[in-house]
Write a protein that binds this DNA or RNA. Sequence first.
DNA 1: TTGGTCGATTGGTCGTACCAATATACCAAT
DNA 2: ATTGGTATATTGGTACGACCAATCGACCAA
Lengths: 258, 258
Amino acid sequence: MAGIPDPLKNNPAETKEGRLSTLRPVGKNRVSDEILVQLTELILDGVYKPGEKLPTERELAVRFGVNRASLREALRRMEVMGMVYIRQGGGIYVQDYAAHAGIEFISFLVQNGIDLNKDLILDMAEMRIQVGNMMLRMAAKNMTEESAAALQKAFDDIVGAVPAQRQNGELDFAFYYEVAKAAKNRIFIFLMNTIRDVMSKVIGVYFEVADNPKTSVALYRDLLGALQNRDGDKAMEIFERQARRDDAMLAALLEGMD
Amino acid sequence: MAGIPDPLKNNPAETKEGRLSTLRPVGKNRVSDEILVQLTELILDGVYKPGEKLPTERELAVRFGVNRASLREALRRMEVMGMVYIRQGGGIYVQDYAAHAGIEFISFLVQNGIDLNKDLILDMAEMRIQVGNMMLRMAAKNMTEESAAALQKAFDDIVGAVPAQRQNGELDFAFYYEVAKAAKNRIFIFLMNTIRDVMSKVIGVYFEVADNPKTSVALYRDLLGALQNRDGDKAMEIFERQARRDDAMLAALLEGMD
DNA sequence: TTGGTCGATTGGTCGTACCAATATACCAAT
DNA sequence: ATTGGTATATTGGTACGACCAATCGACCAA
């Protein structure tokens, strides 16, 4: 027997999540999540335009059939992402997300399958390459002996790890973390976090292949060598070659989307 | 203009701005804001370490002397920023923000005067230059006739604007927005939003000078010219020279901080 | 040891009442 | 007619208190 129509209750089978995702953590049972997604879609679809006033909290709660507290939790998150601004006594106003949203907004969209399209993903992939190159260039330039030693250690950890330890990508992250530290700019690590979230959420296989142990150990070895020689151009070349190979595969996987 | 007696009339698009003071912004009306800041500081200070379990919502609410709903609103925001993760029935766990927080986390820190230090700000300033260069390079490379026309129009709008129209930086933003579009990568605009937020929140004067009409009109003119010639190197050179000049002033202003 | 049960714990949701900032309509003074 | 203040309605902010639902943990049975 098929699912019983259950009004007001979120239907698990109905949740719109990544269609091309291999597997994803089951979840998303919170009411505020659903509200967040729905309101976002309404804004992206132009139902509510920038500068426009949204209905009151009480009205929105009634319309969505949820409690006001749950609605407010969704609004808080929208506020953080720069989609609305709220003034006590005033009301809820739609912000121009293009002018106020941060890059984490993309992460949110992708994670919830909102406005998911090929171009956006490929844009992020390209951004990954550009940011990676930037980081490598600065790392080569600002590398110190301490950084070189830390990088070497991160690499050794990768080499000496058994497959199970490589699974979660923790060691890979540790390597990039050291590169970011070598670049002497603490912003990189946060930037990479968001980019990584987006890419891994879009397709699990992407990083399954990109972080293939055989491939990546050689990659890290070459990167480490270039960085130890302070050869930023070489490091960028190595990284970009591998990254573009990954992206070609990604583009193939995305073929026929939209 | 002498010290403004705090009009406190908040601009719809902008919330409470930090004025020139680099201290904590006033006007933090919401309880959840205060909770958010306090909890964040506790985590950054190592009172609660990554992986550690926080007290229950009910207990936290009692300890902070607030209602549970308010506490939850703060937790939602921390969740968005990647500082905690929450499981129904399980509890609230501290995440390793270095591994999970996005760049907007920096924005949050700066806006609330948390862990505010010179290096972090200068890191962001450097990031602004690097991202700007990246964007200009790609814009020059991927420029189309349509993009060139749109850029020209954005520039004309700046030239033809009266000072009042330049005040809010809307036209400046429009120019950069066109550059981002010319780069044919929609991620740029979101990245620039966060960077801009951080820089402008840190010191209002920074952009007051950086976006000085006299300076910036010439700057935009030169940038436009370089881009129209598809000369990315030239565009980067122009941008970086001006940006480093701004940053020198910024560094001077930050002198003696920490 | 394994697997299940059941009660306690803890986050998730709800309803309601009231507070505080803002918006609006209105009136009085100039 | 304009200005400026005031009363009232609107609307977001906060608080209790109750109950639901997922998880944890101790215990028991096969």
